[in-house]
Design a protein around this nucleic acid. Sequence first.
DNA 1: CGTCAGTTTGAAAGTCGTCAAGGGCCGTGG
DNA 2: CCACGGCCCTTGACGACTTTCAAACTGACG
Lengths: 253, 253
Amino acid sequence: MSKSCIHHRLDALDFLDTPDWEQLDHIVANLERAEAGDLVILEKQTLNLTRIVMTGWGFRYRSLPDGQRQILNFILPGDIVGFHAMVIAQTESGLEALTDMTFASFPSREMVELHQSHTRLMLALSWIAGQSERILDEQITRIGSRNARNRMAHLLVELYIRLRQAGFGREEAALLPITQAVLADALGMSAVHANRSFRALQKQGLVDREEGFLRLVDISALSRFAHFDHEYLEPDEMPPPTLTALNESELVN
Amino acid sequence: MSKSCIHHRLDALDFLDTPDWEQLDHIVANLERAEAGDLVILEKQTLNLTRIVMTGWGFRYRSLPDGQRQILNFILPGDIVGFHAMVIAQTESGLEALTDMTFASFPSREMVELHQSHTRLMLALSWIAGQSERILDEQITRIGSRNARNRMAHLLVELYIRLRQAGFGREEAALLPITQAVLADALGMSAVHANRSFRALQKQGLVDREEGFLRLVDISALSRFAHFDHEYLEPDEMPPPTLTALNESELVN
DNA sequence: CGTCAGTTTGAAAGTCGTCAAGGGCCGTGG
DNA sequence: CCACGGCCCTTGACGACTTTCAAACTGACG
């Protein structure tokens, strides 16, 4: 990829002006690394830091008293971690790196400044945050209202589409660095049952294993099987009223 | 209640200045009514409107192809609906009124203007939105990693605490206007099983039915039973770096 | 060659959904 | 006044789904 994923996503939005792109470059200047397995953020720590994922996969999770772990959602390139750190410094969920990762990290006080100095950029970041919230809604629906094999198929299709939207090709986006144990924690089922569900999908020719990766073999069949409704992932355009409101406020300045 | 719930919550934050309070009053001027059972927002509509709940209960939900309905979260007085409408006009979840409700509603383009004109107020609203997101995280954890009776107890305690934080008294906050069918949809279980789980809690003296309401009889026992961890609902203070960033930007003006 | 993480399978037990039927309460209309 | 329908709650029986326990297999790695 020539452009970073965050650029790719915001470019598709077709909303930012030159000064905003420059400000984004400025924010993204300070890079940070993590290795697969690192606990980048712990549960219940105080953190005035916002990150944008440049490369690699991770997941947010919460631990339960009995030692179980619930994965809340997957964090992919172009996602923002700690968007709300400017107003809520206390973390409840942890962040674990699934692969090696790189982040652009910056003090969340800079998010405060963006409100006034680069409102368009702030709105673009809010747009990404809003998409993440829809993904949480979908995770609730998935876990609450679908059986095991549907849950799994549905999540896999979601990951594929999100990767495509972040700029990955068909091949790359179909090869997922997740183990069955991780799938189990994400889908709220036991590892044994995750394996049985996976094998069922495998027998139907929908997925396969490949050198430590999970391969999506037939995405459209997988999508049909999961009754997948694309819409919640569609990157809508910026609403017209927002555009006019912005233009008016810029005239004032 | 002398003050509205949104005032009560933001007052606890101890962050807003007089101009922000005035702007909030201005935003909250236009009231809208809904009756119990009304579909205030439909799934998949375009809506450039943001609402603040003044009175009454509702819930956000998504429908599935088989007609099932998953309740994503409950909407209580002081909550914001459509916070992201300024950047994402397309709704995926619907909003149904559980009781009669009143909203303060305003075009979401006003949210855009707040970024520059009333940054503190915008941050305060973001603070509420951030809390809502934590509640989604907890809903995922609840549905994904707890058994039926724990799920139910946990949700009930959450609702109690949220109501208390919105300014309701111990008595009021312990009387919930939800049926067992609604509980079932929220917890991702069948109505029959919701009833069995409820009866189990009832036999333990934790909850009871009362004139169409669900009564929380022993909240601390319920909380222990659910292994409830208060922290995700604690209304943290505004982070110090955010305060200094704001003060500096105000000096510039 | 042994270890380890990840995967696989069977069997038994537990949780949960579905189907079916019935009860209580309340407002409407005869 | 009573019959009726509608909504909500309740229960039993049965079957489906899921977890747990235990054991074994695979490939990568030192």
